[in-house]
Design a protein around this nucleic acid. Structure first.
Lengths: 201, 201
DNA sequence: TGCATAAATGAACACCGTTCATTATATTTA
DNA sequence: TAAATATAATGAACGGTGTTCATTTATGCA
């Protein structure tokens, strides 16, 4: 069994190597500069070899999307120990945007890029997206239980808040705020978050 | 003067033909299926000819982005005759999402795709984006003047509302809501809009 | 050591955006 | 009208892309 075990290990090591190389290119040179050929080149393999470990480029991007969610989830958990539900929800929102802007490549592939959407459809579930959504939902639920968002529909509020933070993150990442000076944008974002917090009751 | 006038007319007609063909391909076959070669093919010209009328592909996409804004602006104006400021702002929000979902290709190239961002940066202004933003700002201002959004910062509220509707539109267009049934999604969107309306005061 | 299996190769295919020397068409001049 | 000039269009070529597959190389087992 030892040999087949080693083979399996080597296979997953190679998959990991490809993935890490893709991520590195992704972060260093941007989305449009990641190609199968460049990944292969960076690890001294021929282009065809990549296809022995991944079905196609979308599978690599989908795997990166998964890694992004894993990082994202950890990042979000750091906020869950806050007692006060409103403070927790507020911190959650800020953490969301913070992650997005600190890891724009990950955020893009998780929530903006077209590539992973096809695979999500294929698998007919989006486990990682749902898990993130549930976290937000729990926090909104806590607020409602504590008497905030009175008379509001839980799902509607959750979707609204998600859309809100996603809107900010994606407008910035896709450079629709590039003509707003950085410090002004920061204030604007902080102001918008504060406004959103104030709507809890 | 007649001949040079005709030449100019022919030049702008050809530019228009290229643009309309690009738009048609865009809408019929999606973003990734629009190529210089396919545009040229569709109008029975060689690929090189396109470059006599447009500097590069990004210029075509940027021009489509401009057309999109022109359509968008007209669409938004239809809502401006509503008297009550809150009702007007609410209708504005619904019109925004309505336009985005009815013209996903336009919306994508206006607010999501990477290509136009480079040209925006180049010109160092985003006249069309600013005009749209002003319209929203005026409507929020009217609400504040009428006593709503008390104690809120105008710019912060405008940015928050824009981010909110953009968030909804872009999550749907980039297929992050594809596993939510269409009718449920419609309800969710309506609910979120209603929640947002309720935060005005 | 020889053989079967697995892994890696890299040329080939069909695309892409873009450039540019060459060809064809239209206009102006003699 | 004919020749010369200016404008427009061409399409091959360049360097890139994702992907496939017959061929070669390396490994594991008898």
């Amino acid at each position: 069994m030892s040999i087949s075990e080693r083979k399996e290990r080597e296979k997953s090591e190679m998959r990991e190597l490809v993935l890490q190389t893709a991520l590195k290119l992704f972060i260093d040179k941007g989305f449009e500069n990641v190609s199968i050929r460049k990944i292969a080149d960076a690890i001294d393999y021929s282009p065809g070899t990549i296809y022995l470990y991944y079905k196609d480029k979308d599978e690599i991007l989908f795997e990166l999307h998964n890694r992004g969610f894993s990082e994202f989830y950890k990042f979000q958990l750091a906020v869950q120990n806050i007692e006060d539900p409103i403070a927790r929800l507020d911190a959650h929102g800020r953490a969301y945007i913070d992650f997005a802007l600190s890891n724009p490549e990950y955020y893009d592939i998780m929530f903006i890029a077209r590539a992973p959407a096809k695979k999500i459809k294929l698998f007919n579930n989006w486990e990682l997206g749902d898990r993130t959504y549930s976290l937000l939902k729990d926090n909104v639920k806590s607020c409602i239980d504590a008497g905030y968002y009175q008379g509001q529909n839980l799902e509607a509020v959750v979707f609204a808040l998600w859309a809100f933070v996603h809107g900010i993150a994606s407008l910035i990442i896709r450079e629709r705020m590039q003509l707003v000076p950085k410090d002004v944008l920061q204030q604007l974002t902080a102001g918008a978050l504060q406004f959103m917090k104030s709507t809890a009751k």
